[in-house]
Computed example of a mutant assay.
Amino acid sequence: MAEMKTADIRAMSPDQMDDAVLNLKKERFNLRFQRATGQLENTSRMREARRDIARIKTVAAQARAKKK
């Protein structure tokens, strides 16, 4: 999965953002296990997933602040 673009995230509904964060957290969990067992091939994916989570959370917070 490639890095998520901010424009794509802004087009998501709040429920879709929550689902995306949940999926990315599951992916990070699996990546940590792969790293621990020596099976992780793409080590940069861990960093991308972490940053994608932060990016989605930031856009969601901005959307909530805008509604108030």
Rank of each mutant, 00 (worst) to 15 (best):
M1P: 06
M1N: 07
A2Q: 11
K5N: 05
R10D: 04
R10W: 07
A11C: 01
P14G: 05
D15H: 08
Q16M: 07
Q16D: 09
Q16S: 08
D18G: 12
D18P: 01
D19P: 01
D19M: 14
D19N: 14
A20K: 11
L22F: 09
L22T: 10
L22S: 11
L22H: 08
L22W: 09
N23S: 15
N23W: 08
N23T: 10
N23D: 15
N23Q: 13
K25M: 08
K25V: 03
K26S: 13
K26L: 12
E27P: 02
R28S: 15
R28A: 15
F29N: 11
N30D: 15
L31C: 04
R32M: 09
R32L: 07
Q34M: 09
Q34W: 00
Q34R: 12
Q34S: 10
A36G: 09
T37Q: 08
G38D: 01
Q39S: 13
Q39G: 06
Q39E: 15
L40N: 03
E41C: 01
E41S: 14
E41A: 14
N42A: 15
N42Y: 08
T43E: 15
S44A: 13
R45I: 04
R45K: 13
M46P: 00
M46I: 15
M46C: 03
E48T: 10
E48D: 09
E48K: 07
R50G: 12
D52M: 03
I53A: 04
I53N: 02
A54V: 03
A54T: 06
A54E: 11
A54C: 00
R55G: 00
T58Q: 11
T58K: 11
T58E: 12
T58F: 13
V59Y: 05
A60F: 04
A61H: 07
Q62F: 07
A63K: 10
R64M: 09
R64S: 14
A65C: 00
A65G: 06
K68W: 08
